[in-house]
Design a protein around this nucleic acid. Structure first.
Lengths: 232, 232
DNA sequence: AACTAAATTTATGCCAGCCTAAATTAGCCC
DNA sequence: GGGCTAATTTAGGCTGGCATAAATTTAGTT
């Protein structure tokens, strides 16, 4: 089986664009120029230029003034980057003593440099995990990913129990705050109170009453709503 | 202690130039434009251009038409790269199952991406080694390096014993050949015969007679000549 | 239907790093 | 010291990837 070598190996920039476009499609269904520019902290015209190149390389399709969509090849590459990132995070935490909250920067640097071979070696050392320490699913080497969608904590109904599944965020400060509340992937809680407009959510966790504050925070906590309250 | 952050962090290209210039200075005492171009597999005019930028950044001094010399800052950066490379090689071999002979490519990619923090974490996991698996000395985090110079195997006198110390080469084929002879850093041998002009060297190793062939090969084997023959 | 605000694209320009071709310099030989 | 050769530098060009300013399109009023 002649490994699919001799693909031109994407530039660091292109890899970042694909990753961001993938995330935007997932979160909001579409990837618009200004959203990409925002996420990459560059000016919108620069995105227009790159989008042209990505479309030429058939990694995205582009409808002018409307936004961009990953092609099959583009999605494959994006998932490959996501796998690298999450395997790297897992390895750095598991084998090199990195903390939950500050591993993202390092993984971000390395994901553009490691070979597929090294990623797979790390995966083996980790026991081929399917989820990273933040609870996020790790795409398989073949490019498939667990499609389960969870709810933001802000949408779980008052009185219901929930299980915290993953944190879709990499900001160290937020991660530290979440960890300080005792929220880890798999943790079960009950929603005691909830303010409208994605306001604070009050939960009971491990017998304690805790307040989860801030729109960006509670809405980035991906949870599953449990049918039967587990804390009656 | 405000860590020396906010240095502009050298580009990948610049890091490669500094590494190559360091090696050339070490091997032949001077670093000339064409030698740099050769080592990096780029055209000489490109080197001229980069040398100008390196000189502007005070990483090298440049005497037109004469060559280039690392400044103190340049040498510091070169040693930092060497430390990264050798720690990475050691870690990949020791903890991720890489082989002696094909670890170089991976380390070469990673050395531009890893953070100093990660390098030091790997060094700790390895027990702060002073030499890598090829026998090459690893610069300290402070930027000092074991200055010991060994002899190429081709210069050890017939009848004398020697100790193999390090292989100054990364070519996988050569490394495999050397490994197949049983030559590992620390191995002791006796020179039985030696052809002039860096020709083949015949040695006795572990009781067997072996022939080390090829100029580039035997001369890249750095050895120490033992005063008292150990195999009488 | 026309006007306006916001998003997007086009037009230009800059820098890093590479290239080739042409000009320059160094080193050597007689 | 003149001339040849090899090494080096200058000149000019290209691509990737960013920027700003100006033009264009979309969408939401009214």
């Amino acid at each position: 089986m002649p490994n699919s070598v001799d693909r031109p190996s994407l530039s660091r920039s292109i890899e970042d664009y694909l990753k961001v476009i993938y995330k935007l499609e997932l979160e909001s269904g579409s990837a618009q120029t200004s959203a990409i520019a925002d996420a990459l902290a560059i000016a919108p015209p620069s995105v227009s230029g790159m989008v042209k190149r990505l479309a030429d390389a058939e990694l995205v399709t582009h409808v002018p003034y409307r936004g961009v969509e990953l092609t099959e090849a583009g999605r494959r590459q994006a998932l490959r980057m996501l796998r690298r990132h999450r395997i790297l995070e897992s390895y750095l935490i598991g084998h090199l003593g990195y903390d939950w909250d500050d591993v993202d920067r390092e993984a971000e640097r390395l994901e553009h440099a490691v070979s597929d071979d090294l990623v797979e070696r790390m995966a083996v050392k980790l026991g081929n995990p399917t989820h990273d320490p933040h609870g996020a699913p790790i795409p398989s080497a073949a490019g498939t990913i667990d499609p389960t969608r969870y709810l933001p904590m802000t949408e779980i109904e008052v009185g219901h129990a929930g299980r915290f599944r993953m944190i879709g965020d990499a900001d160290p400060e937020r991660l530290r705050f979440i960890a300080s509340l005792g929220l880890r992937p798999g943790a079960e809680f009950r929603v005691l109170d909830r303010q409208p407009f994605n306001g604070p959510v009050t939960i009971e966790l491990d017998g304690d009453r805790k307040e989860v504050i801030g729109f960006a925070l509670a809405s980035s906590l991906q949870c599953e709503q449990l049918e039967e309250p587990t804390l009656p």
